[in-house]
């Protein structure tokens, strides 16, 4: 159904999540997906920007095909990361899926106004959480035509 991106290379996913348990759960759910992917996990907003700009220890980082971004992050919030990504001519076309505990209407509106590609509230229940990650994986990796570069 989905054409091979990057000549069949795995889909590179940048996961920005400060909670270790949720990051591990997310990565586990993504690994079970049908489309080959590689997950790169960073724990705060500054690391996310360093990864995207290939700075410091991220000098050899690949360009992500998709970013999964939490909003509540140390050092630099998800809203700030989103604003930087979406105002950068080289980065703005990378789809950013907000994955957060918040279902606050203000966060939803602010994220979509800031050009988040999508906003998903993480369910508290563990099974539902895994189901939500799988839904994101299925939609964004098999239905969506991701930008090639």
């Amino acid at each position: 159904m989905h054409p091979l991106l990057n000549g069949g290379k795995p889909i590179e996913i940048l996961l920005v999540e400060d909670c270790v348990d949720e990051a591990e759960l997310t990565m586990e759910a993504l690994r079970d997906g049908r489309v080959r992917n590689r997950i790169h996990w960073v724990e705060d907003g500054e690391e996310a920007m360093a990864f995207l700009h290939r700075q410091g220890r991220f000098a050899a980082a690949p360009r992500p095909d998709l970013i999964l971004l939490d909003l509540r992050l140390p050092k630099m919030s998800g809203h700030e990361v989103l604003a930087e990504v979406k105002s950068d001519p080289d980065l703005k076309r990378i789809p950013v899926v907000i994955m957060t505990e918040s279902d606050d209407e203000k966060d939803v509106r602010r994220a979509y106004d800031g050009y988040a590609n999508c906003y998903v509230t993480k369910p508290v229940d563990m099974d539902k959480f895994i189901e939500a990650v799988k839904s994101i994986e299925e939609f964004w990796l098999t239905i969506v035509h991701l930008p090639a570069a």
Binding site: P3, K86, P89, K92, P95, Y112, Y115, C118, H145, P147
Partner: peptide, 30 residues
């Protein structure tokens, strides 16, 4: 601008998809 826009298009070049994402399409589907 907060309203999600899904682009549905056929037989387009890779460039058309890039352009749509650069214009903040929420997602593109062939």
């Amino acid at each position: 601008r907060h309203i999600p826009v899904v682009i549905l298009t056929s037989s387009d070049s890779e460039q058309a998809f890039l352009d749509a994402y650069n214009l903040h399409a929420n997602c593109c589907v062939s």
